[in-house]
Amino acid sequence: MVPRSWRKIRYRYDVRGSYCENCGNYHYPPRNFCPTCRRKGKLVETLFPEEGRVVSYTVVREKEPYIIALIELDNGARVLSQLSCEPGEVKIGMRVKKAFRRYGEDGEDGIIHYGTKFVPVD
């Protein structure tokens, strides 16, 4: 499990995705092949905007409830992420910004997973 999450660290710690210089589309997670331009695509890695809006969301009612949202960033790319706020605060269309947070751990003696969550823009 460790190598698999380690390979993703660069793209989870910050919202880094790919941008196709040929068609102008952004992708998250980053792709190494542009689904629009295919072989003509020119993909480069880029840091995505810090803010976006909530397209839709859900509160997952597990023992410790958490909120997952589909977020459209200001460059048009969509990102599935957790929202760190009160469930009652969330609304479709709400502006959110990225935050560096803990996502969980592989048990008490395992590695800690960090990544990007979003919080309401105040």
Binding site: A99, R101, R102, I112, Y114, K117
Partner: peptide, 13 residues
């Protein structure tokens, strides 16, 4: 801190 905050997240922010 929030449940998902620790020294690393505070340091990064």
């Amino acid at each position: 801190p929030d449940v998902d905050e620790d020294t690393a997240t505070i340091g990064v922010e």
